[in-house]
Simulated scan of single mutants.
Amino acid sequence: MSAMHNNRIVYLNGEYLPESEARISIFDRGFVFADAVYEVTSVIDGKLLDFDGHVARLERSLGELGIRKPLTREALLDIHRELVARNELTQGLLYLQVSRGNSGDRDFLFPAEDVAPTVVLFTQSVPNLVDAPKARTGIKVISVPDLRWGRRDIKTVQLLYPSMAKMMAKKAGADDSWFVQDGFVTEGTANNAYIVMGGRIITRALSNDILHGITRAALLGYAREAQIEVVEMNFTIEQAQRADEAFITGASTFVMPVVEIDGVKIGSGEPGRVAIRLRELYIHEARKAAI
């Protein structure tokens, strides 16, 4: 059983603290400029999924923004494991955020290089992460224009527009939104998007336009090993509506079937055979490789 929320232990700049005692400066650039990057790692059976992939992407994001790498892989692993243990987390998520740090006052210019990054980690208990009810029914999505900045490959905390898109979906009676740019689907609000046609998995190729999903990379590797054909190409909402199946992937969703897009049922309107198989495959393989 997870520790009670108000007793949760978090990590802040080298200290393990009750969440009620954690404090960050109002001048931290993550707060005033969204000058920060983050990662979310899934936890199953008290173990970390795809940890090395998340660390590699974190280091890439930091490098693209010129933020100093604050900790080694080994140190990050120790912190992740310590928080899992202290919070008795068996199933859920571990959030990691690194900002450029406290510049001493609000200034558009980056602070001096000797300013230490701010490092925050906390756990979130999700008891039904594996047995998610939505995985049995599938989710509904709507399409919205992709109005985000151009470097979506960097996992920044600039999540206002995705949050707005989530709220648009909720207002429309749906579960999530898919972004559309120049007529083609880019990705979901916090996930990568896929369709299935003729047994083939179709998903947008990696570029600056989408996040390089860690779950995406792992799943496509498992799919290819299972002799499922993967095609990386753009697709439209109309093509998705005519597809046999659709689904999303993400650290907090694994593989989640999509059964309706903009009010149009996909296939039978129920989770498809390929999506169900891929979810089972991912959870099985990720569990085996967890650390």
Rank of each mutant, 00 (worst) to 15 (best):
M1C: 03
I9G: 09
V10H: 00
G14D: 11
A22E: 04
R23L: 11
I24E: 06
S25A: 12
R29E: 09
F31L: 13
A36C: 10
Y38F: 15
E39S: 03
D45N: 15
D45A: 13
G46E: 14
F51H: 03
G53Y: 02
R60D: 05
L62W: 00
E64C: 05
I67F: 02
R68K: 15
R73P: 01
L77C: 02
E82G: 02
A85F: 08
R86C: 01
R86Q: 14
L89Q: 02
L93N: 01
R100P: 08
E113Y: 06
V119F: 01
Q124Y: 10
P127E: 04
N128A: 09
V130R: 15
D131R: 14
A132G: 07
R136Y: 08
V141L: 13
L147Y: 04
K155T: 07
T156K: 06
Y161I: 14
S163L: 08
K166A: 09
M167H: 07
M168L: 10
K170I: 09
V180M: 09
T186V: 07
I195L: 15
I195G: 13
M197H: 11
G199M: 08
T215I: 04
R216S: 05
I228R: 04
I228Y: 08
E229T: 13
V231I: 14
V231W: 07
I237E: 07
I237A: 15
Q239G: 05
D244T: 13
I248Q: 14
G250R: 04
G250T: 05
S252M: 06
E260T: 06
K265Y: 02
S268M: 07
G269M: 07
R277Y: 15
L278S: 07
R279W: 05
H284W: 06
R287H: 13
R287W: 06
K288V: 10
